[in-house]
């Protein structure tokens, strides 16, 4: 007999495959940003602050993180469809923990984000980024993106379940998207023109993700950022997931 958990995750993955719009929009956004920013300001990559690996190596983590903003809306949209059709109520009557249906949707998003991250890293390599960290660096970066993306996905699902508004599915991602511009996304911290931006970037969790990915993918920057980034991603992932699981009762009442 198959474990109901496997069945539930299987259903969530089938739904992700049959409705790939969030994943494709994340990938499209990511590829667009990589092409456009490399074309627009890639010429500055020769500066010593970029570590000598070329601008695409510096920019690539932005591509990985920006794909999260589209891809992480899938679970919230899937749950919203189930709630809207009433089917969530039917699932909630089955003799399995109700949070399993929420966790399955988040896991499906996480799986999609992991695969998409590998695609973006492959694209980055094709565009000239040296993957000096090898397989460990590539899979480590994908794992970091997945953990943080699961947090955004779960927070989006919690927002939709608490308010019943599907339009909130993308807003958590959009809010985090703005943090990209307050992080060392396009230039290192030391090249940021305004002092206030340097201060803000030091408090911005995305800064640590970005810098850790640079370390893992291309060997650029301080290795000490890697454990900090995993801690940030774990807090986001676990916090978001807890919020989503605690929101199930709100749907039923």
């Amino acid at each position: 007999m198959r474990n109901p958990g496997t069945l539930i995750v299987g259903r969530a993955l089938r739904r992700l495959v049959s409705n790939p719009a969030p994943l494709l929009s994340g990938l499209g956004m990511s590829a667009f940003f990589l092409f456009v920013y490399d074309a627009a300001i890639g010429g500055i990559g020769f500066l010593p602050e970029f570590g000598g690996a070329g601008y695409m190596a510096f920019l690539l983590p932005m591509g990985v993180i920006s794909l999260l903003f589209g891809s992480s809306a899938g679970s919230a949209q899937a749950l919203s469809r189930d709630i809207g059709s009433g089917y969530f109520m039917r699932l909630a009557l089955a003799p399995v923990p109700r949070s399993a249906f929420v966790l399955a949707a988040i896991l499906a998003d996480a799986a999609g984000i992991f695969v998409s991250s590998l695609i973006v890293l492959g694209l980055g390599a094709l565009l000239g980024a040296p993957l000096l960290g090898g397989a460990v660096g590539v899979f480590g970066t994908a794992a970091l993106a997945t953990l943080f993306g699961a947090g955004i996905s779960a927070a989006s699902a919690a927002a939709v379940m608490r308010t019943g508004k599907v339009e909130l599915a993308g807003t958590i991602g959009s809010a985090v998207f703005m943090l990209l511009f307050l992080a060392p996304t396009f230039v290192p911290r030391e090249l940021m023109g305004a002092r206030w931006l340097q201060v803000v970037s030091a408090w911005n969790p995305l800064s640590y993700l970005m810098e850790a990915m640079r370390v893992m993918v291309s060997g650029l920057g301080e290795p000490s950022s890697v454990p900090i980034a995993f801690a940030v991603a774990a807090v986001a992932g676990l916090g978001g997931t807890a919020a989503a699981c605690l929101s199930v009762r709100k749907v039923l009442n």
Binding site: S85, G86, Y87, M89, R90, L93, A94, P95
Partner: peptide, 15 residues
């Protein structure tokens, strides 16, 4: 929940 079956007023189907 393993003992009961439920059909509420609104249909609950996966479209």
């Amino acid at each position: 929940r393993a003992l009961i079956g439920v059909a509420l007023q609104d249909t609950q189907l996966d479209p």
